[in-house]
């Protein structure tokens, strides 16, 4: 009986494992191989050992890109997470209007990146959008997307706009399942609304916060869409991140081997973050 169940089990898993093997697993393995070669995408890849990685370590453009991925991570760990926690907590405590606010906050999440990027590109336009309204119209109205010092933050804001409502919804669901008696106990101790948020709500939903923080870090290193659509990595490479660099190396400058090594670097970062998360979870005995 047991043996039969195992055979049947493999049968049901076969489609998933096959499609993943073909699309993800095997290409990922051959990507590691490619990263040790020089290849234009045509003809035979030429084995060059760790040259791509040496170049990666010395490439200033890559360093700048990693730095921007880190800035992006930091922004996304703080701003949307903070907005979402705060928003969810406010909604939780205003039940009557809560549904309305939740739906309004969540709506941008269903907007696709292409549409959201085009909406925000318009809002950032120095002649038409919000800038003349906020900074005054004229020749020196800032062009937030066109200026290398502000472009990355401007793109990030567009992404935050779309993203934070999703986080809010998840935090709200987690907060709803917090045992109400914890709040009552805190109230008896004389805790105000802010104290209750800090010492009851946040600790109770910590697993959710940690999981979404993990996802945030991983996604922040993979970010591509928003930057590619809104700035294309410009102006003057000031918004180039690992994702856009890889794309350009592989398909614009035809350095598939070098692009593969950037891919391996991104994979290693993801695995590293997942590893930290899993070991933290094990050490602190969080439930799966």
């Amino acid at each position: 009986m047991q043996k039969k169940q195992i055979r049947i089990g493999w049968f049901y898993l076969l489609p998933l494992l096959t499609v993943n093997g073909v699309v993800v697993f095997l290409p990922a393995v051959s990507n590691v191989f490619l990263s040790f070669t020089s290849w234009s995408g045509l003809g035979q890849p030429k084995w060059i050992g760790i040259d791509n990685y040496i170049r990666l370590l010395q490439d200033d453009v890559v360093h700048q890109a990693i730095l921007r991925n880190l800035v992006w991570t930091l922004i996304f760990l703080i701003v949307p997470m903070g907005l979402a926690l705060f928003g969810a907590y406010l909604v939780l405590r205003a039940p009557a209007a809560g549904t309305f606010f939740r739906l309004v906050f969540f709506t941008p999440y269903i907007v696709s990146t292409v549409v959201s990027a085009s909406v925000w590109s318009f809002l950032y336009s120095p002649t038409l959008g919000l800038s003349p309204l906020l900074f005054g119209a004229g020749a020196d109205t800032p062009n937030l997307l066109g200026n290398g010092d502000t472009a990355l933050y401007a793109v990030a804001l567009a992404n935050i706009w779309q993203w934070w409502g999703f986080l809010m919804m998840v935090f709200f669901a987690a907060m709803q399942s917090v045992n109400p008696s914890l709040y009552e106990a805190a109230e008896l101790d004389g805790a105000g609304a802010f104290r209750k948020l800090i010492s009851v709500t946040l600790p109770a939903i910590r697993p959710t916060i940690m999981f979404l923080a993990l996802m945030t870090v991983i996604w922040s290193f993979l970010i591509f869409d928003y930057i590619f659509i809104m700035t294309g990595g410009g102006p003057a490479g000031k918004t180039e991140v690992l994702g856009t660099l890889l794309y350009k190396s592989a398909f614009w400058s035809r350095e598939a081997g070098y692009a593969a090594s950037i891919g391996v670097l991104m994979g290693l970062i993801s695995l590293f973050v997942v590893g930290i998360y899993l070991s933290l979870r094990k050490r602190l005995k969080w439930e799966i």
Partner: peptide, 24 residues
């Protein structure tokens, strides 16, 4: 084991398999 495999698979960047997949 399989669940862990799926979790890890899910967090791998598309960029890691993009270049070979494109040529395949």
């Amino acid at each position: 084991t399989l669940i862990l495999y799926l979790l890890v698979l899910n967090s791998l960047p598309i960029q890691l398999f993009l270049v070979p997949l494109f040529f395949v």
